[in-house]
Design a protein around this nucleic acid. Structure first.
Ligand SMILES: [Mn+2]
Ligand SMILES: [Mn+2]
Ligand SMILES: [Mn+2]
Ligand SMILES: [Mn+2]
Lengths: 150, 150
DNA sequence: CTGATATTGTAGCGAAGGCTACATTTTGCG
DNA sequence: CGCAAAATGTAGCCTTCGCTACAATATCAG
């Protein structure tokens, strides 16, 4: 038998494929994260504010919002601001925790705060649950309860 | 005066813009890294092998190679395999070191080897020089000499 | 040497994610 | 109220990066 570790080239290809998926998801993740933040801190998430904070034109932001809606993560009605669906809120909570954990890890490793925040913005989208778990252990944090049964 | 720390939204937007650039560069970086590896280990880098290892169709690989050539990182002639220019080789050396450093850091943090290799494939493209420096310190490695004058 | 096979290259398509320019709607104020 | 400014939405356009299908070239066995 020879398929115990699956042809190396195949494993490598799978890693690249996985990274491509993460790259594709990164954009929407950032929008969800930001919308949650705007809603939490200001009570509303308007396309213009979203665009300004993400650094794209408002037209681009509106298209991204349309995609969020298509994927069931957000809803909005014309001129009324954007809101997160249940699914969107759940995702946002996960993303917020992940973002913080990545930043905290970088800080613990001695990365300057500005740089930590900068690099985390890209890194966060590529950190698997297994790595997050290792980060928590390293930071001496208890593993958080999974989706607790209410 | 109020521009000491530049409006927070602006800084945030800049981080996102930077992450977008890294995301765009990631594809070509992976090709350069792989081509160097193929050349080093087998002496030649053929489009088909590149495609298989990256996990895309050969047509996609050939287009990426065309872009590498456009950007002055590689050269090739029909049916003759791909080679890296001076610039391509320099970039490859940097990318190889970065990839290894990221993997080693994850391993040191207790991330399982398979996962480390998996996550590093995406993370590597978003780690700035300042963070790499922190990683080296954490791993107890001497800062490598910059572009040494020969 | 010749023909099958593998490799390489090309053409054309689609989705994402950018942009600018223009149209519409809302808002806020004199 | 009425109207200007701000916000929102829409309509193209471009590039990247995937894909499949097909064409052309090299390679290798027999
Ligand atoms: Mn991000
Ligand atoms: Mn984030
Ligand atoms: Mn990579
Ligand atoms: Mn790599």
């Amino acid at each position: 038998m020879d398929s115990a570790e699956d042809s190396p080239a195949t494993a490598e290809a799978a890693r690249h494929a996985s990274a491509r998926e993460a790259r594709a998801a990164a954009v929407l993740e950032d929008y969800v994260e930001l919308i949650e933040d705007l809603l939490a801190t200001t009570g509303e998430a308007r396309p213009t504010d979203i665009a300004r904070r993400i650094g794209v034109s408002h037209a681009t932001a509106i298209k991204a919002i349309a995609r969020l809606k298509r994927e069931g993560l957000a809803h909005s009605r014309p001129y009324r601001g954007v809101f997160l669906t249940e699914a969107g809120q759940a995702l946002a909570a996960k993303l917020r925790a992940r973002h913080r954990l990545v930043v905290d890890l970088l800080l613990a490793l001695g990365v300057p705060p500005e740089v930590a925040e900068h690099d985390a913005e890209g890194i966060e989208h590529h950190v698997s649950e297994a790595s997050l778990e290792a980060f928590r252990r390293f930071l001496g944090r208890p593993t958080p309860p999974g989706p607790a049964q209410p």
